[in-house]
């Protein structure tokens, strides 16, 4: 009975989120070594170092005790904002918590519990580690049967999404891979949400409010009216979204 709490009186809501996150994979535990390399990178691409939140991954370090505080200080000096640590021994976990950072289990193990990343003294956004995504890997695909209605969102974060039915105006379908709609597509369709340029959108009847492949998008207004209401495929060619008739 989720309705018991009056919405107006709520100070906050917890929501799951998938945020793009830079993982800093440490190959050295020496803060000075890290400092040198960071300084080098900073001169190459200063735009990247703009209080960018990073997750420090220490999975591949074989050191039970880590000068975590100094490494964090080096990062902050170079305008990187460590928000969490991934992997490492128990002392590493403890010192991460002591520093107000979240801790994630190493990637091989179970799915991280996002709540663990909420620290007591510092506002840290919940962070989920990046999951490795291969373009060819469609094992995480999903089939949805029925109408996706206004306000609803159907996601297949790790593979293709197949909708057997209509996607109505105001609805949103997202996939890490391609989006296939066996019916009218009237809402928003986003394929390749993790940046897969090979992904495409396929539908039986095009009326989409928005089409996007790997972040390149077209609005309904930008779509050639001759293609509307027909069966099409949408793919990325030379950073341009092209819509082609399937008939």
């Amino acid at each position: 009975m989720s309705l018991r709490v009056e919405r107006d009186n709520m100070a906050f809501t917890f929501k799951g989120g998938m945020l793009p996150m830079t993982v800093m994979e440490l190959a050295s535990a020496d803060p000075e070594h890290i400092r040198e390399q960071l300084a080098d990178k900073l001169s190459q691409s200063p735009a990247f170092f703009h209080h960018t939140p990073v997750v420090l991954s220490v999975e591949h370090l074989d050191e039970p005790h880590l000068a975590l505080e100094r490494i964090c200080a080096v990062c902050r000096d170079h305008k990187l904002l460590p928000v969490a640590v991934r992997g490492g021994s128990d002392p590493v976990k403890q010192s991460a918590w002591a520093l107000g950072l979240g801790w994630f289990p190493p990637q091989e193990s179970e799915r991280p519990r996002a709540l663990e990343s909420v620290s007591s003294d510092e506002a840290v956004p919940p962070v989920e580690p990046e999951t490795p995504l291969k373009a060819e890997d469609m094992s995480g695909g999903r089939i949805f049967r029925g109408t996706v209605r206004s306000g609803q969102q159907v996601t297949s974060p790790e593979g293709d999404l197949v909708v057997v039915g209509a996607v109505n105006a105001g609805a949103e379908v997202l996939a890490g891979g391609s989006v296939h709609v066996y019916g009218p597509l009237r809402g928003r369709a986003l394929a390749g949400i993790h940046g897969n340029h090979q992904a495409g959108i396929f539908c039986r009847e095009l009326r989409a409010e928005l089409l996007s492949v790997a972040g390149n998008y077209k609005r309904l207004e930008d779509i050639d009216p001759r293609l509307l209401d027909s069966a099409v495929q949408v793919r990325l060619t030379e950073e341009q979204l092209s819509i082609m008739s399937l008939d």
């Binding site: 309705l3 209605r149 206004s150 306000g151 609803q152 105006a169």
Partner: peptide
């Protein structure tokens, strides 16, 4: 029609 569509979504979830 759009609002009815939204309500139908809620009917199947909430």
């Amino acid at each position: 029609v759009r609002d009815s569509d939204r309500i139908l979504g809620l009917l199947s979830a909430k």
